[in-house]
């Protein structure tokens, strides 16, 4: 199983310098009000990594500060050992779906082609080859039939797939996805997760903001628990426990115990044993 092999291989062998993401003492503030405090974090390569935390915990802010979209008050970030600016080409980003205007006069193919813009470079137009590549990406998420539809005429789940296709077109090594599972139905959720598994099987790292605690253990290998501070981060088997979740969600969560009971019942994770 790809999962086992990858975890076994990458668990201890990476050094901090080569880690996909290494964050030191990160503090981020909006209008002088800190929303992330002193985050220290190193993420492993080739895994599916969940970022969980309540609304307003700073999950989106965390991703945005890593990508240089919001200024950091202090701290340092490295991607595969270098600054973000020099590693742009290795990083893909799927923003929250609500962050764009879906009435914009573009079709699904145009949006996916945007994933290729960095590669195309300044001033050069999108050509036939690029469009072909974009269409291939749409095909991979099962949306080839909708390529020429204006994007507001797609359902929420279809829009999410278009965003994922765009990320695929970016052909990155490290992906940041902000709530790709928000508001999608079971079929799309399955499609997305199998896509994530596929990315993982070719050695990509995906950092995914995720809200459904029940599915964290089944979908992800590694988890980052965040609530303004870093509560804990590590392999799901060791850090995704009641105590940590209570710390993250402030004990207000009744669903939580249920989720953990469910989790306890699932006999799996062969990677535990190596």
């Amino acid at each position: 199983m790809a999962h086992t092999r990858k975890t076994a291989g990458s668990k201890k062998n990476y050094t901090q310098a080569q880690a996909p993401l290494c964050v030191k003492d990160l503090t981020v503030a909006y209008h002088r009000k800190p929303v992330l405090w002193d985050i220290d974090l190193t993420l492993p390569e080739g895994q599916l990594i969940a970022v969980v935390g309540p609304n307003g915990a700073g999950k989106s802010t965390f991703i945005k500060s890593v990508l240089g979209l919001v200024p950091r008050a202090s701290g340092a970030i490295s991607i595969y050992g270098k600054s973000y600016e020099s590693q742009r080409h290795l990083v893909g980003y799927v923003p929250q779906r609500e962050s764009v205007d879906w009435d914009f006069p573009v079709n699904a193919l145009d949006v996916v082609a945007m994933g290729l813009y960095r590669q195309i470079g300044w001033f050069r137009p999108v050509n036939k080859n690029h469009r072909k590549k974009a269409l291939d990406s749409l095909e991979k998420v099962g949306m080839a039939n909708y390529a020429y539809r204006q994007i507001s005429q797609l359902s929420g789940g279809q829009q999410q797939r278009v965003f994922l296709a765009r990320a695929l077109a970016q052909d990155a090594r490290l992906y940041f996805m902000d709530e790709p599972f928000a508001g999608v139905d079971a079929a799309t959720e399955r499609a997305i997760i199998s896509l994530l598994k596929e990315l993982k099987s070719v050695g990509k790292t995906c950092v995914v903001v995720h809200h459904d605690l029940q599915t964290v253990p089944t979908y992800f290998d590694h988890v980052v628990l965040l609530n303004m501070r870093l509560v804990d981060a590590g392999p799901v088997e060791t850090v995704f426990n009641e105590e940590n979740l209570k710390k993250t969600y402030g004990g207000r969560l009744t669903l939580l115990t249920h989720a953990l009971n469910e989790y306890a019942k699932t006999p799996q994770f062969p990677s535990n044993t190596d």
């Binding site: 945005k64 990508l67 240089g68 979209l69 742009r88 990083v91 980003y93 923003p95 962050s99 764009v100 205007d101 914009f104 573009v106 145009d110 949006v111 945007m114 813009y117 960095r118 195309i120 300044w122 001033f123 050069r124 137009p125 999108v126 765009r166």
Partner: peptide, 22 residues
């Protein structure tokens, strides 16, 4: 015309555009 692509992506999705270096 020259900035057609750049204007498109920065108008539609400024965050993604910025992460890509536009």
């Amino acid at each position: 015309i020259v900035f057609f692509k750049e204007l498109k992506i920065t108008s539609f999705d400024p965050a993604l555009a910025t992460t890509m270096g536009f």
